[in-house]
Design a protein around this nucleic acid. Structure first.
Lengths: 138, 138
DNA sequence: TAATAAATTTGTATCTATTACAATTCAGTA
DNA sequence: TACTGAATTGTAATAGATACAAATTTATTA
């Protein structure tokens, strides 16, 4: 899987100076494709990095966002979520458990930016919602 | 345009008991297709309804949402926004000024719910972002 | 290498959207 | 008119995110 060294290199591709904290956050994102929240990232890294501050996690993800190393998902009313996969794909949020899943295999046509809208459209976000199977069964 | 009486009738269609406050909020939504936030609704109605509480606006919109009289837009990281138009259309948010605009005339194919995803998909939200023309010029 | 400058991290305080909840008010009915 | 339940209100509490200054780390220059 992804190592710290690979995360380090990954950051450099986006012109991000790889500090220990930034590398750890990126490594977490590369390994955990669960669209984590700031809190989830912080709680996951905290045990092995006791001095880590939540502010640093915020700063780090804002930097990643600026540099295009991650995309922010606005799908969950409660928290911002982050995705290292910046290629075209949709997301599904379970309104019961709150988990966010990827939806690949959508037609590329869905991700085309509309013309003649009167706006300078830069990005699309396609968000589905409903109930996931785990929650549906219980 | 929309009158208080029409808003009253509109609420009844969704089995919502039309109180003075609820009717005023619905009338505001029917007249102002700007995807307002709770705060914007509260500030707009407050002068003519001095006793109105912001909690009531929250309660009211949560009720409207439950009954399907409005849809909640999750496109703005800062606030929830509400739209009385529950038919299929997309939205555009200007990352500069924060305004949310409708995008009609999108292909109906965009609003089809995907099959075989392993989820019970109930709804789609198609959100574009970028810079609006007003902001682009300045 | 030592001293200095710049960048990063950290902790605390602050802001703000939203919800919880109890008290009050209002509407409908006997 | 008195009573019952629903709706509204105000305050307090919760929680995500940002502001900011102090402390620490990293880079640069003498």
């Amino acid at each position: 899987m992804y190592t710290s060294i690979q995360s380090h290199r990954y950051l450099l591709q986006f012109s991000i100076k790889p500090s220990v904290q930034r590398t750890a956050v990126m490594e977490y994102l590369l390994k955990n494709r669960t669209h984590p929240t700031i809190d989830e990232i912080y709680l996951a890294l905290s045990p092995s990095m006791p001095t880590l501050s939540k502010t640093t996690v915020y700063n780090t993800l804002n930097l990643f966002l600026e540099r295009g190393a991650v995309q922010q998902l606005v799908i969950d009313e409660k928290n911002a979520r982050y995705d290292v996969d910046t290629t075209s794909h949709g997301h599904f949020i379970c309104k019961n458990c709150g988990k966010v899943y990827d939806i690949f295999n959508l037609s590329p046509a869905l991700f085309e930016l509309p013309k003649n809208t009167g706006f300078n459209v830069h990005a699309v976000e396609i968000s589905y919602s409903g109930v996931c199977n785990e929650c549906h069964q219980n």
